[in-house]
């Protein structure tokens, strides 16, 4: 799995960082998404898919390979 985040589209809601803190964080000033792990381990794939599906900015995309 490869994760890509678009910081321009991010609305800073913190949903991703709240639900999958192993993969997403937020910078401190405006709460914009910070991608910690673009190739997360297998056990997190489901959570990452769900974060992408839930992101209100549609700022997270995921490619499976």
């Amino acid at each position: 799995m490869r994760v890509i985040t678009n910081t321009d589209a991010c609305v800073g809601c913190g949903l991703c960082a709240f639900t999958v803190p192993e993969v997403f964080d937020q910078e401190q000033e405006h709460g914009t998404v910070v991608l910690l792990d673009p190739e997360p381990p297998h056990e997190l794939h489901q959570d990452v898919w769900e974060a992408a599906r839930s992101c209100p900015g549609e700022a997270i995309s995921v490619k499976d390979f």
């Binding site: 913190g14 960082a17 709240f18 964080d25 937020q26 401190q28 000033e29 405006h30 709460g31």
Partner: peptide
């Protein structure tokens, strides 16, 4: 305005 708020409502701070 929102940017000022989201910086204060990060997942980390809420935890």
């Amino acid at each position: 305005i929102r940017q000022q708020l989201t910086g204060k409502f990060t997942a980390r701070r809420m935890r």
